[in-house]
């Protein structure tokens, strides 16, 4: 078996496989690998040692068969179940959420409607109240005005009657005064009738 070892312990370099192992392929040539001593590996490169093939094949068949059965019968259905359950649950939850959303939207709409009608109602009440109050105050004002006008008319009538009475008094005083003046001037009282005529003429004139 070709085998060299450098003084500094450089790794062993193998160029070719030993011809002593028929049926085995050469080791990866050109790659730095150490060829093991024949007694260690029973000759040849272990992966190409055909003696081990039957054992490996049988155990692989058993092990891989067992793996396939365990996976297809137990492990994979189990995981598939979990995933399916989650998928269903998520779908259910989404459905539920959509339902709740629709409900809340309906509630919001109803609320909006109630709010709108309440607002309209409030507006109506306000208008009504304002109108009522305006009418009431109008009526009050009118009655007050009428009252005031009546009082004014009464006052005016009183003024007019007072004025007439005063005017009548003025004539009497003028007649008396004129009689007295004439009496004083001529020393003789004039006839009452002529004085009254004179005064009436003066007043009219």
């Amino acid at each position: 078996m070709p085998e060299t070892q450098g003084p500094a312990g450089i790794i062993v370099i193998a160029q070719a496989e030993t011809p002593a192992a028929p049926g085995t392929l050469p080791a990866v040539s050109g790659v730095e690998i150490a060829v093991p001593p024949a007694e260690a590996h029973g000759g040849g490169f272990p992966p190409f040692d055909a003696h081990t093939f039957p054992s490996q094949l049988i155990w692989l068949a058993i092990a891989f068969g067992a793996l396939y059965l365990l996976m297809s019968r137990v492990a994979l259905p189990r995981i598939a179940n979990i995933l399916e359950e989650r998928h269903d649950r998520v779908a259910d939850d989404l459905e539920e959420a959509a339902k709740l959303k629709a409900e809340s939207e309906a509630a919001a709409q109803a609320y909006e409607q109630a709010l709108g009608s309440a607002r309209n109602k409030a507006h109506g009440i306000a208008t009504e109240t304002r109108d009522k109050l305006a009418a009431e105050s109008d009526a009050g004002r009118k009655s007050l005005e009428a009252e005031l006008a009546a009082k004014l008319a009464a006052a005016e009538a009183q003024i007019a009657s007072t004025k007439n009475a005063a005017m009548a008094n003025v004539r009497g005083i003028a007649v008396d005064t004129a009689s007295a003046i004439v009496d004083t001037l001529i020393g003789a009282a004039p006839a009452a009738k002529s004085v009254e005529e004179a005064v009436d003429t003066a007043i009219k004139g």
Binding site: H51, T52, P54, S55, Q56, I58, W59, L60, A63, F64, A66, L67, L70, M71, V74, A75, R78, I79, N81, I82, E85
Partner: peptide, 29 residues
């Protein structure tokens, strides 16, 4: 030539590892 080898032991170890991991990991579901 038949024998139970280190290779076979590792094969069964792998199968056991995979199976027990998958069942243990999903035990809570």
């Amino acid at each position: 030539e038949l024998a139970f080898t280190n290779s076979a032991a590792f094969m069964f170890g792998i199968v056991a590892l995979v199976f027990f991991f998958l069942t243990f990991a999903t035990r809570g579901r």
